[in-house]
Design a protein around this nucleic acid. Sequence first.
DNA 1: CGAGTGGTTGACCACAATCAAGACCCGTGG
DNA 2: CCACGGGTCTTGATTGTGGTCAACCACTCG
Lengths: 246, 246
Amino acid sequence: MNAQSKKLTVVSDVDCNAVACRNCGICRLGAPLDSTEADSRLLERIAKNRRQIKRGDLLYRIGEPLKAIYAIRYGTIKTYLSTADGRSQITGFHIAGDPLGLADLHDGVCSTEARALENTSLCEIPIDHLQLLTEEIPSLRVQLTQLLSQEVQRLQGLSLLLGKKTAEERLATFLITLSQRFARRGYSSREFNLSMSRNEIGTYLGIVEETVCRTLARFQDDGLIENQRRLISILDADRLAQLAQV
Amino acid sequence: MNAQSKKLTVVSDVDCNAVACRNCGICRLGAPLDSTEADSRLLERIAKNRRQIKRGDLLYRIGEPLKAIYAIRYGTIKTYLSTADGRSQITGFHIAGDPLGLADLHDGVCSTEARALENTSLCEIPIDHLQLLTEEIPSLRVQLTQLLSQEVQRLQGLSLLLGKKTAEERLATFLITLSQRFARRGYSSREFNLSMSRNEIGTYLGIVEETVCRTLARFQDDGLIENQRRLISILDADRLAQLAQV
DNA sequence: CGAGTGGTTGACCACAATCAAGACCCGTGG
DNA sequence: CCACGGGTCTTGATTGTGGTCAACCACTCG
């Protein structure tokens, strides 16, 4: 099992840094509890199915048939949906290791639009391929259930944030959550570069750009963070977490 | 397959009306695409596992181990979670046919609290039971994936509502969605009794009780609905749907 | 170096929250 | 049968958080 995961994670340092890939969704999909040698050979086949998209590019759009599910190797993807008159809500910023497209498995139609915030590399599992794979590797279905169930919990948390938290609490939650996600992927939890604009942060948190700016400025005045445009340093994670009301 | 589903749906008219059960989650779980005779016998065993809870009772609470997953036969359950200081957000009103507990499969810990809004009957599948069942009936896992994926989509829609819609649009969306859900279950889509209070509607829609009242009153003045406390009649579904901005 | 994008700050405003009071409804007990 | 009490619903007056509109700043890139 150790040997297997090595085979999967160490692909080539050029297009897959170890940190991203060790935690990448496809590797998590690829290292289920009871995987066998035969499984691992199959999964190598999947892992080869790569896709690169550039900053600003669409991965898929609302209403089109779901062609594949994805796992992000590196980069950032935002997913969003909109009201009839065009107000849109970002439902997630997805980073290395996150799966994409699972929400649309039940009807095979994309319910969100997915766009790259920076150059992004993905593992791609075509839908018809997935059908075969899950038959050959039962544990893959277990993994799908796990990932979907986590996604439901994430969205429940987002609903709490959008329904009940103040602007200040939203921003604090956002920063703490992002920091924790980076930490889990092996990046710094104290200092990081945002790949999204103030506008996009607002569109995710249910507030406007200006409120994001003002609140970040206040956090800086209060010594909670250092705010240099896209570069954020967390100075007082404890107080920030307390503000977040998680 | 027809004979099978008959066996499952027609239990006894006393504790299972046909409408609710034909569409109930356990029956959907119980009538997967490729079910065999053997499967159906197994599923009969599950379907017998019933549970009744009374209005106001807790089904499970946050943090406790997930003992089972459920499907509602009749009644209504609300699920909710809260901020550290006790503001709570209802994440769903679940009616006949809806599954419960799926969101917590990945770590086996309840992430929401579930409480009955009226006397409610559930099918219960204990977690350890589920393990065995999914091994014997592979299509059950497919069903779990489908149901989870639908739940993710539902919560994405809720996020859009909470993040971007006005109070008026929220109420309109709520009424239209509820009406459609009732219709799909075979109840009237034009007139129905709410099982939740104004306060609970607000706690779900991210607004306060008073705003719910005022907005419903306005809808009545505008001839969109008739509003007799818990009894709601939809008078102009089209205009309401337009207001909803779905 | 100038244009353009994204970020910041200020002044003002509006929608919904809060606070408050009263109406309605239903169950319970005298 | 009516009176009482508590919960739910409704309506009104006032307030406040965050939205809107507007101007300016700062960084980047051609």
